[in-house]
């Protein structure tokens, strides 16, 4: 299958755009989307020290590679990687993350739950079970990351969250009926290093492909404790639905942004038809249908 923009062989078919893209045009499209997210949110500014939360997964490895490519010639922005070892036996040797950071050429720092808290995640699970393992891990990891980031003078934390993660979150909040989370604006909390998500407009499969094409040694394994049942269900529902309706994940992310930042929504809402006086959208559909019928079109 040929690339829609040149004669090379395609590596991906983007259902939502209808384009086949070769490796070169895929990279260009991917990086343009990530740069747009950074530009629109004004996420990186002169003087920033950006740290990638590098677990060694496809997402974090890809975001480190991309940011290094974007920033390596800039003298006014510093890039580094931080890895937290949660202490999960047989899962993600931090040495993998170190090797990725070394290969890309980015300074790397690490910390462990064991040293910071005197506990590993394995020990927490042994005491409390797996039900709350994800939320415990998330809270402890975020706090530790934040602490190291402050010590290292980090001003922005870059995460590999992708379009699928964002869309799932919006749908999960809707299914829970959690209006507060759906409409809560993104605010910077005191002493919390702000998070940036350059891949938030890029589907997970494309992040995986970008990592596959550029990063050696990233980890494909899933966490043995990953057990967020609702997210798993939502992922399945959304993937099946998006297979038939390819723009759905973008629609959900746009909806999430519109609910958090209502001022971004430019619609004028319901108006009144100039002709019949009934409430309508931009153009009164009732009058349109009657006109069409009368004209016989």
């Amino acid at each position: 299958m040929q690339c829609s923009k040149c004669r090379r062989d395609a590596v991906i078919y983007q259902r939502y755009s209808g384009l086949h893209l070769c490796e070169q045009h895929f990279n260009r499209d991917f990086e343009a989307k990530a740069k747009r997210a950074i530009r629109e949110h004004r996420w990186i500014e002169s003087g920033d020290t950006v740290a990638v939360a590098l677990s060694g997964s496809k997402d974090s490895s890809a975001v480190l590679f991309f940011l290094h490519r974007l920033l390596h010639e800039r003298r006014d922005v510093r890039l580094m990687a931080i890895t937290v070892d949660e202490g999960i036996g047989g899962y993600r040797d931090p040495g993998l993350a170190r090797a990725i950071a070394d290969t890309i050429g980015v300074p790397w720092v690490t910390a462990t739950f064991a040293e910071a808290y005197g506990l590993t995640l394995d020990e927490i699970v042994a005491r409390k079970g797996t039900n709350l393992s994800c939320s415990c891990c998330g809270v402890l990891r975020r706090a530790l990351m934040n602490r190291i980031a402050r010590e290292e003078g980090v001003t922005k934390f870059a995460y590999g969250f992708n379009l699928d993660d964002e869309a799932q979150s919006v749908l999960m909040n809707a299914l829970r009926g959690d209006a507060e989370r759906l409409t809560r604006p993104v605010r910077e909390a005191e002493r919390m290093v702000p998070r940036i998500k350059p891949f938030m407009y890029i589907p997970e499969r494309e992040v995986a492909l970008y990592a596959f094409l550029h990063v050696e040694g990233f980890d494909l394994a899933g966490c043995p404790y990953a057990g967020d049942a609702l997210r798993g269900d939502v992922r399945g529902i959304l993937d099946d639905y998006a297979y038939r309706h390819p723009a759905t994940k973008y629609s959900l992310v746009n909806l999430g942004e519109a609910l958090r930042e209502p001022e971004r929504v430019t619609g004028e809402g319901l108006r009144v038809c100039e002709r019949c006086g009934e409430p309508c959208g931009k153009i009164c559909r009732t009058c349109q249908i009657l006109d069409e019928m009368r004209k016989g079109t």
Partner: peptide, 25 residues
């Protein structure tokens, strides 16, 4: 050995490797 879109045709003698990526992390 080459990444391909899903609308490519596979023929007799071809080898297909399917990579599923883990979520999150």
């Amino acid at each position: 050995g080459k990444v391909v879109p899903e609308d490519v045709t596979a023929k007799k003698g071809d080898e297909l490797r399917i990579l599923r990526f883990s979520h999150g992390g």
